[in-house]
């Protein structure tokens, strides 16, 4: 197996990198769509971890779990985009810092 030659640390590094990109997006961006994408990135970073460990331990549970996570992420995106649409309709913008009517 080709993959077997790649040590698990590489996957973990990849996963950490993807997670950090997502985190960076959340911490710095104001556009709600970018927010959503960043969250997806972070989720997928976790997915990579799960698959990598599943492969490492030769246990399929992790991979099954990933399938669930993906379905969940799809549902989340549907709702998230819905919220963004409403946000746009109400504030004519998708900047999250603009929507301040519910806070002080």
């Amino acid at each position: 197996m080709v993959l077997a030659t790649v040590p698990v640390e590489y996957y973990l590094l990849l996963s950490a990198a993807v997670f950090c990109i997502g985190l960076f997006g959340i911490l710095t961006r104001r556009n709600a769509l970018v927010f959503l994408m960043s969250v997806e990135l972070m989720l997928n970073a976790a997915n990579i971890n799960l698959v990598a460990f599943a492969f490492y331990w030769e246990n399929l549970t992790g991979q099954v779990f990933v399938l669930f996570t993906m379905a969940l992420a799809a549902a989340e995106v549907a709702i998230g985009i819905g919220i963004i649409l409403v946000l746009y309709r109400n504030f004519n913008d998708v900047d999250v810092t603009e929507a301040t009517t519910l806070k002080w």
């Binding site: 985190l23 959340i26 911490l27 927010f35 999250v96 810092t97 519910l102 806070k103 002080w104």
Partner: peptide, 17 residues
């Protein structure tokens, strides 16, 4: 006291991180 609650998600995420 309420001023520690900014209501901006980014701030909360930064604090958590």
């Amino acid at each position: 006291l309420r001023r520690i609650q900014t209501g901006v998600v980014t701030n909360y995420a930064a604090i958590i991180t």
